[in-house]
């Protein structure tokens, strides 16, 4: 298996706080890689280093053979990395179909294109693709609604559609089921499993063990800014270090 994301020796400090301490991570193509750990372990900081929001103090982050360091968020997206946020980041004032058309246009036209004379509703391929993706996440009935009027679970699915429509090589999911009901969580797991069939590599940060063990092929456990254990779900389940650090000794 080839690795699509290589993280080597990454350090990041905020003032005196060492948020990331020599993090090493290798994500293999086509897998679902979960990163778990207690609050403050550095999971989100690490994710922010992948998408250009933060720059590590030292170390390298290589994606598909190129370095992501020093790249702007939009440049990183354009090489094939999409991100779902912890709280859904959508275009709240726009309709659902517009929400999905924007990333479609971004993939088709690149980071900037001055085309003020074309009608957006005349670009059939973009609209069709957007509507197709909305159908994939069961939102086609609401496609003309304003995105802010959606429930939280629906917003999450919309954001997922916005990422999937770009056919990313790597999809980053930051707590995709945070704040969801059990029913919504299960729906999201099913959805993520279904999109798993597209072969998109995924990194999932998650607190909900149910979600992690339903989805992940491989799990990295972080604590205090560093990766303390890595392996297949069943190995992680039985690892005493993990239970100590993450669960305070409680059993899974």
């Amino acid at each position: 298996m080839t690795s699509i994301l290589q993280v080597k020796n990454v350090n990041k400090s905020f003032g005196g706080l060492k948020a990331l301490n020599n993090v090493e991570l290798s994500v293999e193509q086509g897998t679902v890689h979960a990163i778990i750990g207690p609050n403050g372990a550095g999971k989100s900081t690490l994710l922010n280093c992948f998408v250009g929001r933060l720059t590590p103090d030292t170390g390298t982050v290589d994606f598909d053979g190129t370095s992501l360091l020093g790249k702007q968020p939009h440049e990183i997206n354009q090489v094939g990395v999409s991100r779902v946020f912890q709280t859904p980041e959508i275009f709240g004032d726009l309709s659902l179909v517009e929400n999905v058309m924007i990333p479609t246009l971004a993939r088709r036209d690149g980071a900037f294109k001055l085309n003020p004379w074309q009608r957006v509703d005349s670009i059939a391929e973009v609209r069709e693709k957007a509507e197709h993706l909305l159908a994939d996440v069961d939102l086609q009935d609401k496609k003309d609604m304003i995105a802010n009027s959606l429930s939280r679970g629906d917003k999450r699915r919309l954001e997922l559609a916005m990422c999937l429509v770009q056919d990313p090589k790597l999809l980053l999911l930051d707590e995709p089921t945070a704040g969801m009901s059990r029913a919504d969580t299960n729906k999201t797991i099913d959805l993520l499993k279904r999109i798993g069939e597209r072969g998109i590599t995924k990194i999932v940060i998650e607190h909900d063990m149910h979600v992690v063990f339903s989805l992940a092929n491989k799990i990295s456990v972080m604590a205090q800014g560093t990766v303390i254990a890595e392996g297949k779900p069943e190995q992680i389940k039985g690892d005493p270090r993990v239970q100590e650090a993450y669960l305070g000794g409680a059993h899974l």
Binding site: H74, F85, G92, L94, L105, V120
Partner: peptide
């Protein structure tokens, strides 16, 4: 136009637009 759609997207959520490759 698509250009105008992007302008409205900037007003709505500039952060998301950056992470959408724009």
């Amino acid at each position: 136009s698509p250009f105008g759609t992007m302008l409205r997207a900037i007003k709505s959520n500039q952060n998301r637009l950056n992470y959408t490759g724009i």
